[in-house]
């Protein structure tokens, strides 16, 4: 090995990231090269100081006690919505007849919906629980690009002009998704966006909104509507009627079309603000109807 190669690999050598063979070759070079050995000594010194610093400080006993107290308080609260979720999910099994072990190529739909409901109910706390507290669409778009590598279209406001509260990263059916929370009139509305489409299960109840197939599911009091658009999965969860959830879906679809049809490239398009007027979808029909 050359000195240049060895010095470039010293970090990996000290971080135990080299194979045995590679480490052996570096060691052989160091044994016979004073210059590289001195360079390594500087690195070793820094590593040593960082390690010496790293092992100081024990977690205070009071911190452990505080955490256990909070966990004990959290359990009943958690249990309340978990109880709701279990009953709702059981109902969903019975009413929708959707099987967990379906042979579709994507993740099962019930975990998708139940996960979304769980995240939605978990987010009905103070706004600071969100990872990003921002109503600025441009900032939100930048956050989604950085955190999830996607640049999806999304409405800046809800159906009734509900303002955006913020967003966080969630996991739906094992896939990472952004959860955008809008302040609804009485209850918040969650819009989940996943950077991948999600194939619908066979025989799923279907509606057509603004020419796009959407799939409504109801878990207890929470209405869920999801659809695929532009290579992304969109999912709405809200304590709302199916018509209201479909109206939000229509808003999202129209917003995406408007951006795609009248503006430039997706990444360069500024977000738009929806009107404050309630606009229900132009076409909602059941599967099979015209």
């Amino acid at each position: 090995m050359t000195c240049r190669e060895v010095r470039r690999g010293l970090d990996l050598y000290l971080d135990d990231e080299l194979t045995v063979l590679e480490a052996s070759r570096v060691q052989q070079h160091l044994d016979r090269c004073d210059g590289c050995r001195k360079t390594m000594q500087v690195q070793v010194s820094l590593h040593g100081m960082l390690t010496a610093d790293a092992i100081r400080d024990e977690a205070p006993a009071r911190l452990r006690e505080r955490i256990l107290e909070r966990v004990a308080k959290e359990s009943p609260k958690r249990a309340a919505w978990l109880r709701h979720l279990i009953v709702s999910a059981a109902l969903a099994f019975l009413v929708c007849g959707i099987l967990l072990d379906s042979d579709t190529s994507g993740p099962p739909v019930v975990p998708l919906a139940t996960d979304a409901v769980a995240w939605h109910m978990d987010s009905r706390g103070p706004p600071h629980e969100l990872e990003l507290s921002a109503a600025d669409p441009a900032r939100l778009a930048g956050w989604m690009k950085e955190r999830l590598g996607m640049v999806p279209d999304f409405p800046a406001n809800g159906v009734r002009g509900d303002r955006m509260l913020g967003a966080r990263v969630t996991v739906l059916a094992t896939y990472r998704a952004a959860q955008l929370v809008y302040a609804g009139t009485d209850e918040p509305v969650s819009l989940f966006i996943m950077p991948r489409p999600f194939p619908p299960p066979p025989n799923a109840p279907e509606r057509v909104v603004e020419g796009v197939d959407v799939y409504p599911v109801r878990l207890g009091e929470i209405g869920v509507v999801w659809w695929n658009d532009g290579g992304h999965l969109y999912l709405i969860a809200a304590r709302a009627s199916e018509a209201d959830a479909l109206a939000f879906a229509a808003l999202c679809v129209r917003n995406s079309r408007m951006k795609q049809g009248t503006h430039g490239p997706r990444s360069a398009r500024p977000a738009i603000r929806s009107t404050h007027q309630v606009v229900f979808p132009g076409v909602i029909r059941a599967q099979g109807s015209s």
Partner: peptide, 18 residues
Amino acid sequence: PLPQAPSFTNAAADSPLQ
């Protein structure tokens, strides 16, 4: 280069200087 520091390879900070 860093100043030649005392050995920290045993991760001990014995002296005030360390």
